[in-house]
Structure formats: structure tokens, C-alpha cells
Amino acid sequence: MTASQRELLESIAAHAVILAAVAFSLYPILWVVSLAFSGSTSLEAQVMPVPTDPTLDNIREVVGSTRTEVDGSQIWLFGRQLLNSIVVSIATAVVGVAIAIPTAYAFARFEFIGKRGGMRLLLATQMFPAVASAVPLFMILETLELLNTRTGLVLCYASTSIPFAVFQLRSAFEAIPTDLEEAAMVDGATRFQAFLRVVLPVARPAIAVTFLFAFMTAYNEFILAATLLNDERAFTLPVVLQRFIGEYDARWDLFAAGAIVVSLPVMLLFYQVQRHMVAGLGAGGVKG
């Protein structure tokens, strides 16, 4: 076998491996898609993910949900819930990243008493299961009268997004040469100006990735949302979706339709940002 034949064979094998993996990663998605566009839910198990009796009814039913208000007016419920999800997720990401940026910068650049201890503590908090801190958090929100509000939800989500963003951004800031800020300071900037005008722009990709992750955690969360929210109009989309498949009454077709509508925005955002991911992913974020 010549070298070029060998190369060809290898290349075929490589593509085969990748294609198998692609099939594995796309299959569940296609399955959901086909279910969403199927007119009839058949009892038979299907292998090929193609819709039977293609229709948009399911999507229409999910998206078109409305609600009659006390005063008799109609509101577009799904629109309201979509807005909730988006507002809460963006607010979580903005709050999380905004608080984490200066904190992470200090951890990356300054020497101060309590630095090591602080980082260790923050890392340790990540090991405590959220299940147990959810109830106290719930009580704190209750005293703040924030249950059932978007603010309350944002604060809850911020409690996970802030530590995570601090880890991510700290390693991103550490990767930026100190020379840059020093050059700026020699050029006449204060430390804060150097941070604002040099470090932040340079760290933009990492900030974008962190923002994305914070957004995704909030957008995808459903357990807290399901416990904290008691008003249909305050629901976020995961809660809406979860209701389609109860124990006694599973509407997989509606669930699938909803899943598509819900996933699209976050997937679009994900693909906007993922280019930065190899560079911005601070996998080193966990070192204490």
C-alpha cells in the first residue's frame, strides 16, 4: 500500500467516524423536529425522523396560547412567557457578568489580603448542591418580597452565574499580558481607565462566551422556576414546556413543538458566540 492510498483510507475512516458522531448528535434533535411537525402521533415506534402528516398545528397551538385577563382583555400568553425567559436570561447574564468583571479582574491582577482564601471559598461553594441552598434562597427572596417576580428569579440565577463568571473571567484576564495595562498607565491612563479601555476590549471574546454561558444557564433552568413562580404570566418557557408532559397526560407533540420554539433563540445565540469558544473557554477556571 502506498502512502497516498493509506492517506486516502485514513481520510475515509476519519470521515466515517465523524459522520457517525454527527448522526449521534443530530438524531435526537431530528426526532424532536419530526415529532413537532407530525400531524398524528402514531403508536408505532419510528426510526426515521421524518414527520408523518406534516403540519404546523402543534407549533401554532403552542405559540398561540392566550389568556383572558380578569378585566376581560386577552393577552398573548406565549409571547409574555417568551419575553419573561428572554428578559430574565439577559438580566441574569448582565448582572452576573457585570458583577463578575471587576471581581475577576481584582483576582487576576491585584495582590490583596484574602485573595487566596476568597478564591478557595468561591470554588468550594460550587461543590455544595443547589438543592439544599434553594430553600434558604427561597426564604431570603420571600423576606425581600421577590417571590414570583422576574427580579427574584434573576437573583437566584445570579447566585450560580456570578461564581461561574468569576472563574471564567479570571482566567481570561490572567491570559492578557500585564504589559498592556502597564503601557496604558504609562501612556497616561489611571488603573481604572486602563482596565476599561484596554483590558475589557481585549477580553471581549471571553466576556461574550461567559455572557453566553450565563444566559444559557438562566434560559435553561426549570426546577427553581417551577418552584418559585406561581403565576402563569410569570412563567418562563421551561416551566411551560414541562407542563406538556405530566405523569398522566403526555403531549409529546406539543412538547416537541415547544422545544423547537424555545431552543431556536438560544441556539442562534450559541452559534453567534461559539467561534470564540476555543479561545475564550477558560477551562483553567477551576484551579483554586
Binding site: 458583577i99 471587576p102 483576582f107 484574602g114 441552598s133 430553600v135 434562597l137 456570578i162
Partner: peptide
């Protein structure tokens, strides 16, 4: 350390209220 504290102040308050306190009470329970 003071300049650093200015940078982390907000983060410390947020983490204390939203993360540490719930964990503390959660663990205490």
C-alpha cells in the same frame, strides 16, 4: 489591598448574600 477591595466589593456583597448565606443556612439546617 484597598484598591482591590474597591473592585471586589460588589462581588463580595452579591456572593455573600446570594451564595454564601443560603449555603450557610442550608448547611446549618
Amino acid at each position: 489591598s484597598l484598591p482591590a477591595y474597591a473592585y471586589i466589593a460588589l462581588g463580595v456583597v452579591a456572593v455573600t448574600v446570594l451564595v454564601i448565606l443560603p449555603i450557610f443556612f442550608g448547611a446549618g439546617a
